[in-house]
Simulated scan of single mutants.
Amino acid sequence: MKRVRQCDKCPWTVSTNPHNIPKGYSEALHRALACTIAEPGALDGTGHVMACHEHPPGEEAYCVGWLMNQIGAGNNIPLRLRVTSCENIDVAVLDGPQHERFENSLQKPNRAVAG
């Protein structure tokens, strides 16, 4: 099965400067993605997902960094349950150290905090 790789400029990667994300980065739109972050351990989730910025409208795909955060450190219980039937979740690949919290993804790498 083909690996599902995190994109090169994913804001969840600690080394990414979000202001260098291609295709018209908008800090306001980035901040609005906070609605996709579940309260850790909550049973209701948010109902919102973060799409990868490299996929055009109509061909959206989950942001791999967001997905792995939410089923890991983010403790998004409804999403964890949903991916139990996902046939390619085991081939998702992250690219280096990741932010543990969404808020940190808004910072430039020289100010980023991994925790």
Rank of each mutant, 00 (worst) to 15 (best):
R3I: 07
R3V: 06
Q6E: 15
C7I: 13
D8I: 02
C10D: 04
P11C: 03
W12S: 03
S15A: 12
N17K: 08
N20W: 01
I21H: 00
I21L: 05
G24S: 05
H30G: 01
L33Y: 08
L33W: 13
A34I: 09
C35D: 13
T36L: 10
P40Q: 14
P40V: 11
P40E: 11
A42M: 04
A42K: 14
D44H: 08
T46C: 08
G47S: 07
C52L: 05
P56T: 01
P57M: 03
G58K: 01
E59M: 10
E59K: 14
E60L: 10
E60V: 08
C63D: 14
G65L: 06
G65D: 09
L67C: 10
L67H: 04
G72D: 06
A73D: 01
N76D: 15
P78Q: 06
P78E: 03
R80I: 12
R80Q: 14
L81C: 08
C86F: 05
C86W: 09
E87T: 12
A92N: 02
L94N: 01
G96E: 10
P97L: 09
H99N: 09
H99V: 11
S105C: 15
L106H: 09
L106K: 14
L106E: 13
Q107H: 11
K108I: 08
P109H: 01
P109G: 03
A112I: 05
G115E: 12
